[in-house]
Design a protein around this nucleic acid. Structure first.
Lengths: 124, 124
DNA sequence: TATATATGTTAGCATTACCTAACTGATTTG
DNA sequence: CAAATCAGTTAGGTAATGCTAACATATATA
C-alpha cells in the first residue's frame, strides 16, 4: 500500500492532536478535519490494517513507527512552509491552508532546498 | 462546474502546445501528458461541453476565453515556480515536476507573495 | 429507569480521474 | 486494392476519498 495524500493528512492530524491534548480518538480527528465520522472511521481502519496506527479497546490511537515517521515528516513540512508563507506576507489562515496542500505534493529535494533558502534568505 | 485540478492541467498543456507547435489535437496532449487516448478524449469532451475549448471538424483545439484565462494563470504559476525552484538549487526535472503539483494547490494570495518574494530575494 | 448523548461502525452511494478493450473512419503504404 | 496506421470515441472498470442513513453500544442524565 503506497501511502496516499489523505493518509498522510490523517497521520499528521493524529500527531498534532497528540501534541496538543495527549490522547487521540477518531472523534477528535472528526472535529479538527471536519470530515464525517464514517469517513474517519474507515480511514482509521485502513491505517490500522496497514500498520500505521494502533487502537486500544477504548478507541485511543497510537502512532506506530511507520505512522510516526510519516506524521513527523508532514508536520515538519507543515510548520516550515506555513511559517515561511506568513513571513513573506501571507495571511496566517491562508498560509496554513496552502501549507496543508503543498506539504503533500513536493519532493524531498524541493523541501530541502526550501529549508536552505529560508535559512539564508529568511522572510526578508 | 467548478474547475478541477485535472482540467487546469489539460488547459495548461493545450496552451503550452499551442506555444510550441501552433496547432493542438487530442493526440498531442496524449503524447505530452502520457495519459491514454480515451482519458484525453473524455477530458476534452468535458472541457468542450463546459465552454473552455472548441474543436473544429478535424479535431484541432482552440482555447475559448475562460479556458485561455485558466491556462495562462497556470502557465504563469508553472514557469514562475519552476524557475524559482531551480534558482534555489532544485534539479530542473524535479523543479518542473513539483511546480506542476504546486501550481494547482496554492491560493492567489500565496502566489502573489511568492512573486514579490522572488523579486526582492531572487535566488540568492 | 427511560431517554438522551456520545462514539464508532457497516452499508451503500457519488465524484474525480485514470485505465483497457473494442470499435469507427480516414489516410497512408506495400 | 488490401492492409496497416493514426486519431478519436464509447463502454465498462477501478481506486481514492469523501458522503448519508441506519444501527450498536456505552455512558450520562432527567
Amino acid at each position: 500500500m503506497k501511502i496516499q495524500e489523505s493518509a498522510e493528512n490523517y497521520l499528521e492530524s493524529i500527531l498534532m492532536l497528540k501534541n496538543s491534548k495527549g490522547m487521540v480518538r477518531s472523534i477528535d480527528i472528526v472535529n479538527v478535519l471536519e470530515f464525517s465520522k464514517p469517513s474517519v472511521s474507515v480511514a482509521m481502519k485502513n491505517l490500522r490494517e496497514n500498520g500505521y496506527i494502533e487502537m486500544d479497546a477504548d478507541g485511543y490511537i497510537t502512532l506506530l513507527p511507520p505512522g510516526q515517521a510519516i506524521a513527523e515528516k508532514m508536520y515538519e513540512r507543515h510548520t516550515t512552509i506555513s511559517k515561511w508563507l506568513e513571513s513573506i506576507g501571507v495571511d496566517p489562515k491562508t498560509a496554513v491552508q496552502d501549507a496543508c496542500r503543498m506539504e503533500h505534493v513536493i519532493s524531498e529535494e524541493t523541501f530541502d532546498a526550501m529549508k536552505r533558502h529560508i535559512k539564508t534568505c529568511g522572510g526578508k
